[in-house]
Write a protein that binds this DNA or RNA. Structure first.
Lengths: 117, 117
DNA sequence: CTCGATACATAGCCAGGCAATATGTCGCGA
DNA sequence: TCGCGACATATTGCCTGGCTATGTATCGAG
């Protein structure tokens, strides 16, 4: 599957990360893997993109984190807060409005099936 | 209708402009108006955003322009080139792939109707 | 005659995403 | 046992696109 222009992804990455946390806690690396799989190998979120997003979301109180130090391999688990769950719903709404908006603008082009060749 | 986070719009503005030119030539100001109307008053493309986009598209050979100097009021008409039409199709395809991709990631959240309050 | 809409253009700022780099653990195969 | 690749997190600095602000000029209405 072809990659999507990164410029297009911009602005929706936070939504993806929030969404990846919607059914339970995850740590950074597992979020990358989850998005990679759930997007059918399209979204390859780089570490240099993911971790700053996670830190930002935590600073905004949308996620909370907990270090797992038991084993030598340290993991930082992230979990949605109540505010985070609300944000997720709001941003998903916004996303749908955005899609509707583009569909209206594109007209027939918005409905066409991708053309081979 | 609420505005959409500009960060989310990023990357799709060129597609919108190309789309606005899909059924005939337009000049800058009329493109703004067309997008404003076809988006149900959501997309308010600023001049400082639109003109640079138009210049970029022209430099890339996706649109060609023609000055109308007849009257004192000068207008610069823009028209899609063959390459531009092709790009429009490609980018509309890419947009659809993007939407599908997020639908998969969001799961049920991608289908829900926007909730009041 | 002034104000707001029409019409185009550009300089400069801001923020997000990415590449590169850094650090360290762990398990496997040579 | 040594090294390599996967696992795991973090930060710096660059690039780019969109927005704000500003500038110029025409035109019709009041």
């Amino acid at each position: 599957m072809d990659a999507i222009n990164p410029e297009l992804l911009r602005g929706s990455l936070e939504l993806m990360v929030l969404s990846a946390l919607s059914d339970g806690k995850q740590y950074g690396y597992s979020i990358q893997a989850k998005l990679w799989e759930s997007s059918s190998e399209i979204i390859d979120l780089k570490a240099g993109t993911l971790y700053p997003i996670l830190h930002k979301l935590e600073k905004e109180g949308l996620v909370k984190s907990l270090w797992e130090n038991e084993t030598g391999r340290r993991r930082k688990w992230y979990e949605l807060t109540a505010a985070g769950r609300k944000q997720l719903r709001n941003r998903a709404d916004e996303w749908r409005r955005y899609v509707d908006c583009l569909r209206r603008i594109l007209g027939p082009l918005g409905d066409l099936a991708p053309q081979p060749a």
